[in-house]
Simulated scan of single mutants.
Amino acid sequence: MEFQTERGMLSCAPSRLIVAGWTGRDTAAVDHHIAELAALGVPAPSSVPLYYQCAPALLTQEPAIQVLGTGSSGEAEPFLLRQDGTIWIGLGSDHTDRDLETYSVAHSKQICAKPVAGTLWPLEEVADRLDSLKLQSWILENGSWVLYQDGTLAAIRPLTELMAGAGFGDGDAMLCGTLPAVGGVRPAAGFKMALTDPVAARSIEWAYQTRVLDVVG
């Protein structure tokens, strides 16, 4: 994979991909969400937060991904990469098969590609204001872009805590959890997302299309 940085292009091939789940900072809200999902048949996590293991090959910067069936959806998340001792922050989508989620959350994470934006910032540059970074996403619905997620990283557990819990090391990449979906989780043919640093007046943006494959049995 290749990323644009202020220090030039960064080429890397992560050796491990971690997808952190149940990372909300409000523990009462996380517990309530777990109970809601359990009522829909989604198994409760064995611990909170939980660090799902996925294949690094799932990471993609292609403009479109292919999914099996119509039951998947994206979710914007901060993306971390550690390369040659430097930790970078960017933006990714933990695209997940919601139908498979009722069988196994771990399997639902592994089956879908994970789109990642092509820009990274050094984490040290924003470390003192991480909670102020704004995370947003939009979905293409009935021909129009509709706000789907909107909040700041203050809603997610501190990234230093997540890195420590995951044993985040050199060559690792991690998706760090997400925000609630406005109007509920649902699929869409188009997904776009942004991570904004209001102090430096800059954003990382990315968009991708979802193409549905027929389920043949």
Rank of each mutant, 00 (worst) to 15 (best):
M1W: 02
F3C: 06
E6P: 04
M9K: 13
S11F: 08
S11N: 11
S11I: 07
S11A: 14
A13E: 15
P14M: 10
R16W: 09
L17A: 13
G21I: 04
G21D: 01
G21R: 02
G24E: 05
G24T: 09
T27N: 11
A29H: 12
V30P: 01
D31E: 15
H33V: 08
L37W: 02
V42T: 15
P43N: 10
P43A: 10
P43L: 10
P45A: 11
P45C: 07
P45W: 07
P49V: 05
L50W: 05
L50C: 08
Q53V: 14
A55P: 04
P56H: 09
A57C: 12
L59D: 01
E62D: 13
Q66A: 14
G69H: 06
T70V: 12
G71S: 09
S73V: 01
G74F: 03
A76M: 04
F79P: 00
L80Q: 03
D84W: 04
T86R: 04
I87A: 09
W88A: 02
W88R: 02
G90Y: 03
S93L: 05
S93H: 05
E101M: 06
E101R: 04
S104N: 03
A106I: 03
A106S: 12
H107V: 04
C112A: 10
C112K: 03
A113K: 08
A113Y: 04
A113H: 07
V116M: 02
A117F: 02
A117Y: 05
E124C: 08
E124M: 06
E124D: 13
E125C: 11
V126W: 01
A127D: 08
D128K: 07
S132L: 14
S132R: 15
L133W: 00
L133G: 04
K134N: 11
W138Q: 13
L140G: 06
L140E: 07
V146T: 15
Y148P: 01
Q149G: 01
D150C: 11
L153N: 02
L153P: 00
L159Q: 01
L159K: 00
L162K: 00
M163D: 01
M163P: 00
F168P: 01
G169H: 11
G169T: 13
G169E: 13
D172M: 08
A173K: 03
M174D: 00
G177S: 09
P180E: 06
P180L: 08
A181P: 01
V182C: 11
G184W: 10
P187H: 08
G190D: 04
T196E: 11
P198I: 12
V199L: 14
A201F: 11
R202I: 11
I204A: 04
W206L: 09
Y208F: 15
R211F: 12
R211L: 15
R211P: 05
L213A: 13
V215Y: 06
V216F: 13
G217F: 15
